[in-house]
Computed example of a mutant assay.
Amino acid sequence: MKRNKVLGLGMLIVLGGVATAYTLTQQSITIKGSDTMLILNQRWAEAYGRVNPRVSVSVTGGGSSIGINALINGVTDICASSRPMRKSEIDRARSRGVVVNEIPVALDGLAICVNASNPVDSLTVDQVRRIYIGQITNWSQVGGPDMPIVVFSRDSNSGTYGFFQQNVLRNQNWGRGVRFMPSTSEEAREVARTPGGIGYGGVAYFKNRPGIKILKIAAKAGEPAYAPTEENVRSRKYPIWRYLYFYTNGKPRGEVARFIDWVRSKEGQALVEEVGYYSLNP
């Protein structure tokens, strides 16, 4: 009986050693940044945990600028960004020894949305710009009802804010009445309950959402207006399209590289479509 107890103790020690070894082989990957990509990153993290249980992928949002600063400061493995990094950010990264590596991981049509009760179905890019810089303030100025336009935007931490300011506003100042929201979800909720509301964001946040209508957008006056469908985004007929990015410090290695390769694989890209964005390849 005593011998059995000793054997049993030995087995516990061995099992304990196995458990310890297993724990030591666990690896964590951190992704910080874009709120536009938050749901997508969470879906990737959950699915990859089933593909490779030894790796835990931790996802936090806050905005692309938050993720970019985290990358520059060396506190994240992957920065998720809904806009390209600016030259000033790349220069700041370089000054801290960070080699910025850009990796497209999905395609998006940046959608312009209004309240579902609004009869306006389309705008030009210039009309959107003039609404957001405060030159157009009533829907009657763009063929709609006599109703004040209530303008919603993401806040300045958002990569979508930066992309929109550069590519739609052409770096002009925002109108005085713009209401800045901490997340795209909050922006969508406000537009859905505000008859004169208008907002913008990643197309996945607005698809099939009650109380919201996605507008067709024309590149110029007199040209056809297109909805941000997959076909129109891929063909570039929809004028406000963009890539969604991962950024790493140098070429990714080890588990980070394997995770990113999986994200860009057929399996990972299928999740892009499920969430409501568009995969890199048709």
Results as ranks from 00 to 15, higher is better:
Lys2Val: 14
Lys5Trp: 10
Val6Gly: 01
Leu7Gln: 05
Leu9Lys: 00
Leu9Tyr: 06
Met11Glu: 11
Met11Lys: 04
Val18Thr: 11
Thr23Ala: 13
Leu24Ala: 15
Gln27Ile: 13
Lys32Arg: 05
Thr36Lys: 02
Arg43Cys: 13
Pro53Ile: 13
Val55Met: 04
Gly62Cys: 11
Gly62Tyr: 06
Gly63Pro: 07
Ile66Arg: 01
Gly67Pro: 09
Gly67Glu: 08
Ile72Val: 09
Gly74Met: 13
Ala80Gly: 10
Ala80Thr: 02
Ala80Cys: 03
Met85Val: 14
Lys87Glu: 14
Glu89Phe: 05
Ile90Glu: 12
Ile90Asn: 00
Asp91Glu: 10
Arg92Asn: 14
Arg94Trp: 04
Gly97Phe: 04
Val98Ser: 03
Val98Cys: 07
Val105Tyr: 01
Ala106Gly: 12
Asp108Met: 15
Leu110Ala: 10
Ala111Ile: 15
Asn115Asp: 15
Val120Asn: 06
Asp121Lys: 13
Ser122Glu: 14
Leu123Trp: 04
Thr124Trp: 00
Arg129Lys: 05
Tyr132Ser: 02
Trp139Tyr: 07
Gln141His: 05
Gly143Leu: 08
Gly144His: 02
Pro145Val: 10
Val150Trp: 00
Phe152Ala: 06
Asp155Phe: 09
Asp155Trp: 12
Asn157Phe: 07
Gly159Ala: 10
Phe163Lys: 01
Gln165His: 09
Gln166Gly: 08
Val168Gln: 01
Arg170Asn: 13
Asn173Ala: 06
Trp174His: 00
Arg176Thr: 04
Arg176Val: 05
Phe180Leu: 13
Thr184His: 07
Thr184Trp: 01
Ser185Gly: 12
Glu190Asp: 09
Ala192Ile: 07
Thr194Gln: 06
Gly196Glu: 03
Gly199Glu: 03
Val203Ala: 15
Tyr205Pro: 00
Lys213Met: 12
Lys213Asn: 12
Ile217Asp: 08
Ala221Tyr: 07
Gly222Asp: 13
Gly222His: 04
Tyr226Lys: 00
Ala227Val: 09
Ala227Arg: 03
Asn232Val: 03
Arg234His: 07
Ser235Gln: 06
Lys237Ser: 12
Trp241Tyr: 08
Tyr243Met: 13
Gly250Lys: 01
Lys251Leu: 14
Gly254Ile: 15
Glu255Val: 15
Ala257Tyr: 07
Arg264Asp: 03
Glu267Gly: 09
Gln269Pro: 02
Leu271Met: 09
Gly276Thr: 06
Tyr277Gly: 04
